[in-house]
Design a protein around this nucleic acid. Sequence first.
DNA 1: GTTATATTTGAATAATGATTCATTAATCAG
DNA 2: CTGATTAATGAATCATTATTCAAATATAAC
Lengths: 199, 199
Amino acid sequence: MRTKSGNKDRDIANAAIKVFARDGFHGARITRIAEEAGVATGSVYLYFKNKESILHHLFFEIWQRIRDQFMGVVSRTDITPREKLEELVDRIFALFSRNPSLALVFVNEQHHLVREGTAEFMKYYEDFLKLTEDVIRDGVKKGQFRKDVDARVFSNFVFGGMRQLLQHWARSQKEFPLNSIRQGIRIIAIQGILKTPTT
Amino acid sequence: MRTKSGNKDRDIANAAIKVFARDGFHGARITRIAEEAGVATGSVYLYFKNKESILHHLFFEIWQRIRDQFMGVVSRTDITPREKLEELVDRIFALFSRNPSLALVFVNEQHHLVREGTAEFMKYYEDFLKLTEDVIRDGVKKGQFRKDVDARVFSNFVFGGMRQLLQHWARSQKEFPLNSIRQGIRIIAIQGILKTPTT
DNA sequence: GTTATATTTGAATAATGATTCATTAATCAG
DNA sequence: CTGATTAATGAATCATTATTCAAATATAAC
């Protein structure tokens, strides 16, 4: 008998993150990923069915983690909808804050998988959207948020805005420090841009 | 002598929009684009250097139009920064409102070109961001917008949010009617989500 | 140390699809 | 009408790479 040594699946996944981030999914070469992971080209296929399944795997992990985090936050009863919203934003940033490459893959490559509509992670993605919308609706019901805010539009808008900023941050942490982005989103999404004493 | 008949370049560009939108840039087949345009495969190469240059061409046109629209709006002196902001959002939506496929290409395929950094349209894109930031800064200076709003973060956030909503709209006009999106963005970006009489 | 079994290798394969180019078809000038 | 010139065609080419698999290697059991 012989047992697999090390964590080649993780090595390959991590290598793929780097290469996908730098070259994009279609520009990424399997040989390059293998090299980066320190394994032979063929070994990649012992751990993943094909190139696309590596991307699937990454998105599955990401969305599962996001969904889990969101479940935890949304179910809390000790904080207001507004605080939940802020917490949710923070959790997303926390997820990527140590891994700009993962952030780039996340913001850039999802539509390759969504196109087919069959992706396993889609259920987590949908949960994510629903959970966010629930927080908004709850806030409206509790009278904390404006009645004329459309929960679905709002969720998507904020998610899109975060994606865009996450991308800038990932490309240049210096120019877009995570803290100012987080702060910016809080101000904009929660309080809007108009000058008005609201806090 | 023989002169080129019709507008094959436009036909090809329009065909490419449809095919890129449906199959994505990398999934798009030149033969399919030619077919859709009603020309032979080889003819595509009489009008465009290669597949990528078709995409370049599309983005050049889009960003040039956006930039021009923005120039016009920003230079006006008869409306407030807030009104300018609303107008800018409307102009973007107006640009795509008759062409969901173009919207999909716009939101999904830009990063293929940005990666190389050499794209001709980038200067228009940068103008676009700068013009938006100028409106914000002007609004802050005039006391209409909050002092603690970061113009750069705000511009990117709103742009990202619009992209995300544009994508949903393009995929299903029914579920995300353009008007409710536009209205939603006004409320969120300008007034924020908090319940507070501000108008 | 030997054998059995599972893992790893990386060069060879095979498929794909962008691009080319020799050929054909239109149009125009005279 | 004829020849000259340019546009258009689409099958053949060629390059690129994901994927495969026969061979090599490592580990474990005895």
